[in-house]
Each structure stands twice: as structure tokens, then as C-alpha cells.
Design a protein around this nucleic acid. Structure first.
Length: 596
RNA sequence: GCGCCCGUAGCUCAGUUGGAUAGAGCAACGGAUUUCUAAUCCGUAGGUCGCACGUUCGAGUCGUGCCGGGCGUGCCA
């Protein structure tokens, strides 16, 4: 790969930023100054705009327009842009050259796997902690966001070339296991002889039954507590039953991951049990370092800057009065493990916003302990709550958590009805496949397209709508592009041969240029989506892409175009389809369909 | 009480270290169909960006105060 190609494979916005920043350093004498290149706020200002001159002029106490003029004389952008224009108080407006655009499209076209997007120059080891079901219970709607947002972050990081370590910090070691083991021993003693015979048909019911017996019967409660002790002390028999409960539980949640197209498997699990024998050591270490102290019988860390109701230091409790450890302790063990043994450069935790205080204190404590090197980054990616139509957290009518499995099943049933009503000609098996892709995709897409930090109201009707920024709209847009390919054969157009060895484009129509300019921004959008862990930037981009494609589709006939323009238009179709497919399927885990 | 998040069009929401006349979708209204899937597109209308000060050449974005909502706040996770 020659240098030239390498450079142009960076997002245009980054190339412009670099070059203009460099020129600004020369012109201002202040060293590198951010050029603040952004997409133009209005098409009439061009394609990109650099806003940095005004800030630099302020520093220099000089006239921004004069500085802009000086800068523009220094700029060498003529391989990319038309001559820059100065506007308003000192904006520099940039308009891409059609040749540059065409060259960029051809590069994207040539790079089948990566769509012309460069990998990071500095790959990092990044641990992403997400999903984290309590495996004694079924996954419910509360696990949806962490699971899919976390997965998408991993997918984007992988795509950029980072070393991603997915960690499913499952709840597999709580006191509830004593109860479950005791219940199993009482109701199915044969399990003890032959643990492989264990079969929990309904995880939720199993948990409820055990809980009910525990609440009703003091002897059983005592037995449960004893099982916890046995478990923690490593009793062989108890551990064996525990392991089988864990394995059996996995059979309930793994299919949910599979249906969601989420890349989580057993080898991503490092649950609470993994850290169990490290907890005492963590507490000892913090006590030795005088970071943790005893307070009201509990062992606590008091990181600076956290206060309680009375304005007194707020404790981060790592060991209870009764000697038991808490999730704070487990999280500390995990953070240490990830930094020192997994060699994480960055750890991303994807949990709901209510845990913010916990993570702030966790990070502060880990830093006090000296585990967090200078170049290690700790990030808490929060998200809002999924609400019901009543604006309260989504529950069933009887007030229980909505099971994720059931929610997804209903989505597919509803999607099936939509497919059925609209395209009853299709074979049954295909309808079912489409319904799955649309139903599951709708739930995921609705979540991704919302601002991560906001709560949102869950509505099947809205997420399954064909209009607006929804999965069905996106999937339909894809199907429509694909149908052009299908129709091509009937019209004696050989798409493959027209695209083979294409090396010259004929971009003239406004709709073509508009679509082309959007297509080359894909890499830029992935960067910004990742910088803030905001998948909605990506969905927004894809939606705009679909809209621009529709504009092009209406304005520019493809198959009926003349010989001079048809290959260009076929390429635009192909790149649109590949970008939508990549964004939905590779980065968001949403299936595309060839027909709807 | 204190801390964190939020308040943008009738509704649901975008708005990326402060940038030009604040954007979409839904709903409403008006247009486009001898088609490559109209499940589409184009257009119109709709806003004191909760309120008030302040910083700035420039504020939805930053600061302070207030109003309204959500969440959290010592042995659950």
C-alpha cells in the first residue's frame, strides 16, 4: 500500500484537521492549534468548515478575518478541496473536489472488508464489562441496554483494530445460591448423585420456589445459609451442585445472546465466583496501605470528595460487619485483575446511570490503591431506563420485570404480522426469517437510536414503524437497493462486469454528489460514535444515508441510465448497500434482509 | 439537605472540546407514481431551546441562582 493511499484512507475530516492545524501553527506561531473542522452546518457553506481561526485570533488578539486570509494563503488543500472561502467572522468553508470524492469512493470500493476505513495507529487493550446478568434469574429488560450497547462498543473497537476483551461479570456467587442449592437438594436429591441430570425448565420459577420456601421455613433458611458457607469454604459436593446450576442457567441466557446477535459466550464470563478467593487479599491490601479503615464495624474506604447526608465522608464499604464481602470488593478485585493481569489500557463499564456513584468511588479507590497507571483509562458508560407507556420503568401488568426472552419473542410475533400483512406472497420460511430480523432489529435499533443517557419509552408500534428512524425503514432501504441488483439481470445489465475494474466515475447530479459525500463519511462517524460511546451517532448516519439514497433513487435511474453513467450509479448503490449492511450487521448486530 | 442526570416544535427526540438563519421523525396540510419495491420522495406549517442573570465577537451548548422532573445518598447489586 503506498503512502498516498494510506493517507486518504483516513477520514477526510481528520486530514483536513491535520493540515489546517499545521498551517495554523505556522501562521500563528502558537504551535499546533485545533482547526476545529466540522461538517458544514448548511450545504450552502460547502461540505466542511474550519472554525478554529476565531479562537486562535482571540488568543493573538488579532482580527479573525485577517488571520483567516493569511491562513488560507498557507493552506495546501488543492488535492482535496476547491479554494477555501472565508465567511462571516472567520469561518473557512471547504468544498470537496469531485475528483477527490470519486477517488475516495473507488478506494472504499477496493477495500471489501474495511470499506476504506483505516485501523487505529495505536491499538489498545480494552476491557469492556457489560451485560452481567444475575444467572440465578432470567434476563429481564434491565439487561437489554448494557448487553447491546456494550456489544456494539466492542464491535466498533474491534473494527478499529483494538484488542478487545469482553467481560461478562455474571452474578454467580451471591447468597441466593445457598437457597437454590438447598432447594435442589430437597426437591431433587437424585441430583446430588447425578448432577448431570439437572434440568431447570423455568429458571424464574425455580428461583421463586426456592425463595418462597426460604421465606416460609426457618429451617430451610438456615440450611440455605449453611450451603452458602459450604460453598464459600469449597465443599466439593456443594460446589458441584453450584457448577451445575450455573451451567443450567447458561442454557437459559445464552440463547438470548444468540437471538440478539450479541457476541458473548462462556469464555467471556468472569463472574463474581472468579474473584471470590481474592477478596480477602484485596481488603488486607487496602488495610495495609491504610486506605481502608474500620467504621461502625465495617471496613470502609473514604475517598476524598464524597459526602453523605450529614456532610460527613461517605464510605465505600468493602467488608460488612459480619465479615462478608460486597460487590464493591468484587469490583475492586476485578479492576485490579484487569489492569495487572489482563494489561488493560482502558476499562469500559456499561451499566445504568444509577450506579454512577458506585463507579466514581470504585475508580477513586482503585487510584488510591495505586493500581491505576498513568496511561490507564477508566470509563463508566451509563444509560437511562427503559420505560413503559406510563413513564415508569417497564414492568408487566402484575408488576414484575419483563423477561427479555418474552419481550423479544413478542417483537418477532409483531414483526411477523407486519410482514404477513404487507408481503403475503413470500414463502413461509422466508417470512419467518424476515420477521426475526425485523423484530429483533427493531428492539435493538430503537435502543441504539435513542440518546444513551436518556430514558426512553418502549413502544412496539414505534419501533416497528416503516416510517422514521427505525430498523424496518433501514432494512427496507437495504432491500430496495438489493432489488436493483436482482432486476438488473432481467434488464440485461451485468452488474458484476460493469463494476469490475471500475476506475473512473462520472458524478454530476446533485443527488449523486450528495450521496457520495455522505458515503465517504462513514469512518468519521464511527470515530465520533466511539469517542463518546454513542451508537445513536451511527444510527443517525445510517438513517441519513438511507434518506440520501432514496433521494438519489428517485432522481437518478440506475438500470436505465446510459453507458457513461450507469457504472457510477451501480457503484453508488453497491457502496450504499455495503455501508448499511456493515453498519447494521457488523457494528450493531442487526440483520439485513434481501427482501421485505 | 447534598450529589448526579434531564427540561429543545402539538408528540417522540437529535444537536459531537461554544460557531453562521436550532434540526429530524410522528401527527397536519399540499404535491410527485407509463417505476429500479410509493413500506418512497419533495414541499408547507410549526420553537421566548424551563426561567433569570453572567462570561464571550458569538451560548441550546460554559458559569451562578431559581423552577419542574428522574435517580442516588453506610453495611443489596
Amino acid at each position: 500500500m503506498d503512502d498516498r493511499l494510506n493517507i486518504t484512507m483516513k477520514p477526510v475530516i481528520d486530514i483536513l484537521e491535520e493540515r489546517i492545524s499545521l498551517a495554523m501553527a505556522q501562521v500563528t506561531g502558537l504551535g499546533p492549534q485545533p482547526a476545529l473542522v466540522k461538517p458544514a452546518t448548511d450545504a450552502k457553506f460547502g461540505d466542511y468548515q474550519a472554525n478554529g481561526v476565531m479562537a486562535a485570533a482571540k488568543k493573538l488578539k488579532t482580527n479573525p478575518r485577517a488571520l483567516a486570509e493569511k491562513l488560507v494563503r498557507q493552506l495546501e488543500l488543492d488535492d482535496i478541496c476547491m479554494p477555501p472561502e472565508i465567511a462571516g467572522p472567520g469561518f473557512i468553508n471547504l468544498r470537496l473536489k469531485t475528483d477527490f470524492l470519486a477517488g475516495n469512493l473507488l478506494e472504499i470500493n477496493a477495500d471489501t472488508a474495511h470499506l476504506g476505513i483505516s485501523r487505529t495507529e495505536k491499538p489498545k487493550t480494552i476491557v469492556v464489562d457489560f451485560s452481567c446478568p444475575n444467572i440465578a434469574k432470567q434476563m429481564h429488560v434491565g439487561h437489554l441496554r448494557s448487553t447491546i450497547i456494550g456489544d456494539s462498543i466492542c464491535k466498533m473497537l474491534n473494527f478499529q483494530g483494538h484488542n478487545v476483551i469482553r467481560q461478562n461479570h455474571i452474578g454467580d456467587w451471591g447468597t441466593q445460591f445457598g437457597m437454590l442449592i438447598a432447594y435442589l437438594k430437597q426437591t431433587s436429591p437424585e441430583i446430588i448423585e447425578d448432577p448431570d441430570s439437572i434440568h431447570i425448565a423455568d429458571l424464574e420459577q425455580f428461583y421463586k420456589n426456592a425463595k418462597a420456601r426460604c421465606d416460609a421455613n426457618e429451617d430451610f433458611a438456615a440450611l440455605s445459609r449453611q450451603e452458602v458457607v459450604d460453598l464459600h469454604e469449597g465443599s466439593k459436593e456443594t460446589l458441584n451442585v453450584w457448577r451445575h446450576i450455573v451451567d443450567e442457567s447458561r442454557k437459559h441466557y445464552q440463547p438470548v445472546y444468540d437471538v440478539l446477535e450479541v457476541n458473548l459466550h462462556q469464555d467471556n464470563e468472569r463472574g463474581e465466583s472468579f474473584y471470590a478467593d481474592r477478596l480477602a487479599g484485596i481488603v488486607d491490601e487496602l488495610k495495609e496501605k491504610s486506605i481502608a479503615t474500620e467504621s461502625d464495624g465495617a471496613i470502609c474506604v473514604f475517598p476524598k470528595g464524597f459526602t453523605n447526608k450529614e456532610g460527613e465522608p461517605l464510605p465505600f464499604i468493602i467488608q460488612k460487619t459480619d465479615g462478608a464481602f460486597l460487590y464493591a470488593t468484587t469490583d475492586l478485585a476485578a479492576i485490579k485483575f484487569r489492569i495487572t493481569e489482563l494489561n488493560a489500557d482502558k476499562i469500559i463499564y456499561v451499566t445504568d446511570a444509577r450506579q454512577k456513584l458506585h463507579f466514581d468511588m470504585l475508580f477513586a479507590t482503585a487510584k488510591l490503591a495505586g493500581w491505576v497507571g498513568e496511561n490507564v483509562e477508566l470509563v463508566h458508560v451509563t444509560f437511562g431506563t427503559v420505560l413503559g407507556e406510563d413513564n415508569r420503568p417497564l414492568k408487566t401488568r402484575s408488576g414484575e420485570n419483563v423477561k427479555l426472552k418474552e419481550l423479544l419473542e413478542e417483537a418477532v410475533v409483531r414483526a411477523r404480522a407486519v410482514v404477513e400483512g404487507k408481503n403475503s406472497e413470500l414463502p413461509d420460511a422466508e417470512k419467518e426469517q424476515i420477521a426475526k430480523a425485523v423484530g429483533i432489529g427493531a428492539v435493538k435499533y430503537a435502543d441504539y437510536s435513542n440518546n444513551r443517557t436518556s430514558d426512553y419509552v418502549f413502544s412496539f408500534d414505534k419501533m416497528l414503524a416503516m416510517e422514521g428512524n427505525t430498523a424496518p425503514y433501514m432494512q427496507y432501504a437495504y432491500a430496495r437497493v438489493k432489488s436493483i441488483e436482482r432486476k438488473a439481470a432481467k434488464k440485461d445489465v451485468d452488474v458484476e462486469s460493469e463494476l469490475a475494474g471500475i476506475n473512473d466515475l462520472n458524478l454530476t447530479e446533485p443527488a449523486e454528489l450528495d450521496l457520495a459525500k455522505h458515503l465517504i463519511r462513514y469512518g468519521e462517524i464511527i470515530e465520533s460514535a466511539l469517542a463518546d460511546c454513542r451508537p445513536n451517532y451511527l444510527t443517525q448516519y445510517l438513517y441519513e444515508l438511507a434518506q440520501k439514497f432514496s433521494g438519489f433513487y428517485n432522481a437518478c435511474p440506475v438500470l436505465a441510465a446510459d453507458k457513461a453513467t450507469r457504472p457510477t450509479r451501480l457503484l453508488l448503490c453497491d457502496l450504499t448497500a455495503r455501508t448499511i449492511r456493515h453498519g447494521l450487521s457488523e457494528l450493531l448486530g442487526i440483520k439485513v434482509v434481501r427482501q421485505m
